[in-house]
Amino acid sequence: MPYQPRMLLGNINVFSIPYVVYDLGIICIASLIWFSFNFIIKYTKIGKLLLSVINDREMSSALGINVNKFFIYTFTFGCLLGCLGGAVSAPMISVVPGIGVEVIVLAFAVVVTGGLGSVTGAAIGALFIGLARTIAIFYAPQLELFIVFFVMAIILSFKPEGLFGSKEVRKI
């Protein structure tokens, strides 16, 4: 047996279906991050400042917010989450150079489906896309190539701003 870090934690029976504990752990990590990000953005001072920077960069800087600092911090946090995603999924997939190329397109699809700027949207969008792909592979494998984008196109044609995106107010 090769070394398989994913199996180290063993299996567990959920409703008499065997499940890998590690996968459940990933779900826990994801919900933890979802919860903490929602909390930070909605209920702390930093989150509110961040929202103001996103909405109007010039006005925020006029009000005394260090916009550049926010850009650097936000970018750093984004990269950090990307790293975390790669790290926790590495034991489940085969890691090759260029692995990010496939992921980035799926990530864009998820973000667009969920709606820009919404943490919940990203979570729900990821569920939608992931489930659609799995169902397609199971029932109609020939659709697997484009089902992700097909689902995205259908959702966007009914809700042009994504599932949880707010209608953008255009400036005059």
Partner: peptide
């Protein structure tokens, strides 16, 4: 980004 991704979706559907 919606325009960009929608075009990507259409092109991937054609590819499929």
């Amino acid at each position: 980004i919606f325009f960009a991704m929608l075009n990507l979706a259409l092109s991937m559907i054609l590819f499929g």
